[in-house]
Amino acid sequence: MSMVNCISLNSTSRVVMASCRNAFTMVANLSLYAVALVVFSTTKSTTHSDIENQYHWIAYTSIFIGCCFVGVFHLGTKEPRLKIRVHGTSYARISWAYWFKKVLYYQVGLVYMLTRLAQNVSQAYLAFYVIEDMRMAKSAKALVPAIIYISSFIVSIIMQEMYWTGQRLKAYYCAGGVLWVFCGASILFLPQSLSAFMYVISVFIGIANALMTVTGVSMQSVLVGSDLNGCAFVYGSLSFLDKVSCGLAVFVLQSF
């Protein structure tokens, strides 16, 4: 994520790369479904240990594919420092304190944290909701997240074709936020008899997730600007904040 800023200083290009990254995150999520489908269709499960083995195979295969792509990334990515020299940016080290003095750092940090919180916590509870609350078919446990990923992928692709400014980032973030508010309210009051409506809601959840995530990550790019030597700290610290907050939110919810 922080390397995106080293590749280009252009704000539109940075948003395009953030949306491209989001689209491929969805591809990665969907590929796990393909792996699971292959494993479940090629192996038989009659006992508890057979099912355990199937899940072991899904885990090993996905880890192996992930490692292959890490290898491709490390071997195939050119050193971004070469491009920084073209832009004429200095190598002067930026202190951590520099970011703490910026109001925008706290604003972007909170926005990113809240966005990831909405996305991650909702994903964590999705399976329980469709099975335990809505009493939907077991296939819904896989189908609903898949619909979310597909709609999120499509929106991420569309977002690559647009021209981006700061105001547009704010507007599209708010559009995603409004969608999530309506989706959240629908989920909160959805009766069991209308459980099929969850498939429609999941389309809008996917759209809202893509809008908020891409613009939220792009706001970090705006914060970094041309201070490229500090971008790893910005992305690292905000991602840390997001992970801690998600853990705390699930802990608090589970305590009920």
């Binding site: 925008l104 604003q107 996305q119 916590v121 609350d133 508010v181 959240g184 706001m219």
Partner: peptide
């Protein structure tokens, strides 16, 4: 139930808070 709060209420509140902060930002 807790799943409804986790999937419905929390994301909605987070989105509202996010939008409010975005409004104060100077991008």
């Amino acid at each position: 139930s807790v799943t409804r709060y986790g999937l419905g209420l929390l994301p909605a509140v987070c989105s509202l808070a996010g939008m409010a902060i975005t409004y104060t930002m100077k991008l």
